[in-house]
Design a protein around this nucleic acid. Sequence first.
DNA 1: ACCGCCATACTTGTATTCAAGAATTCCAGC
DNA 2: GCTGGAATTCTTGAATACAAGTATGGCGGT
Lengths: 247, 247
Amino acid sequence: MAVCHDSFVKPDRDRPGASRVLASVGRTRPRQRTSDRVYEELASAIRDLRIPPGASLSETELAEQLHVSRTPLREAIVRLVETGLVSVVPQVGTRVELIRLDDVEQARFVRESLETAAFAEACAKPVRDVSALRDLLAEQERCHARGDIDAFFAADEALHEQIFAISGYLGAWQVMQPMKMHLDRLRRLSLPEPHTVQALIAEHTAIVDALEAGDAAGGREHLIRHARRVQNTAPALQAQYPEYFSS
Amino acid sequence: MAVCHDSFVKPDRDRPGASRVLASVGRTRPRQRTSDRVYEELASAIRDLRIPPGASLSETELAEQLHVSRTPLREAIVRLVETGLVSVVPQVGTRVELIRLDDVEQARFVRESLETAAFAEACAKPVRDVSALRDLLAEQERCHARGDIDAFFAADEALHEQIFAISGYLGAWQVMQPMKMHLDRLRRLSLPEPHTVQALIAEHTAIVDALEAGDAAGGREHLIRHARRVQNTAPALQAQYPEYFSS
DNA sequence: ACCGCCATACTTGTATTCAAGAATTCCAGC
DNA sequence: GCTGGAATTCTTGAATACAAGTATGGCGGT
């Protein structure tokens, strides 16, 4: 597999960057590929624990259940393997990885580092429009009131994403998503507790207040406590659902 | 594409987590898949600019050049698309993305945030063995002396990775790799300047010194300056190689 | 009853084929 | 010479077929 140096490149007839701009402007083209649909389907199913940790997956079975062939399904699997949520042993099988507390700890570190840094950047902005964040807080209250955990989950995500958007580093939030799924599975286990949701909303409020006040240090403390809340419930959850955890 | 709730799961005969431990212990099994080799080959070629930004790729041509079929090649392409370095438009073509300064800025933010956080964690360790770091500094001097840019590149990477290893958050370094390739391409453009390498080594030395002294604040400053050094050369590089840049 | 062996079924990896669509090229007409 | 249109070629997407290897289950011997 030696690389033939210049032969990778194919001579371009027109200017290289031209078509990309068109692709992002003209929205008619990118009808979602089958592989993407399958990935979204599987990723959300794993994140929501509809496919529990440790479950065996069969490419052929999954393919016929989703009414696709193995080819796009495998491309989705490849992306899931990249995240570390799925492992595949050749000629043996594919399975959803168990929750490894080390992975969770690594993900917590990444999230905490990026989120506190983004918050600091957001606080440094001369104007900070927190109205969208206030709306999301109200939405979270409504979800809590009617007991809609899925909707709360979404609003929770949206609030944190909005902080990155204000900071100007939304790209950092996006690249964090695959790794964050390790945290999401743990959070999904802990969410059913009603007082947990209430505590989360209180913390969200404190974070938004700190951002509005430009209190970088205070916000940082709230964010760290927030990020570690789920982490702290890990031992209890492992005791309650031992079959979902590794080691 | 509705999800049939329980039907994803296949009944397990034995305990779910058992085989994974075996797979990581017994090293005979995982002979590298073709898809992985192809990915490594393409990723390094793109990172080293052997495949320049904006180059068109043809699945069929690449497949026959690498002596593989399109199937494993496409799986490698999927992973490259995930990193944002390659874009593929159905029925039109696949190309290596141009260097977008916004992507570079997002990557710089992620790297700076994680690296300063990891450095702080490393400084908090009661014992910090910097001997491996000293060895890498010496190695970098040797590479600089004999003008081996590729080897210097590798030793540079190894030093930063070692800092994460000391901090206990090596996983954070690993998940950062795909995004970091955006920075690597820019760095590759700037490396040929001899004084650049010398300046990098000096900064590396300062960083290691700070870690040995447990000087978290000082190390942070050096790391930030270090991360932004390449970033600062971006305008000049864009002027020199305009065909490699977007917008 | 237990152990070992062999056949079978099932798993993923890879190659090949078919399909759909876009871009280019060539040729006819003006 | 220029313009328009149709055919050809090249692109990726998806499905199918083939290959290699593993685990399982049954069967025969001990």
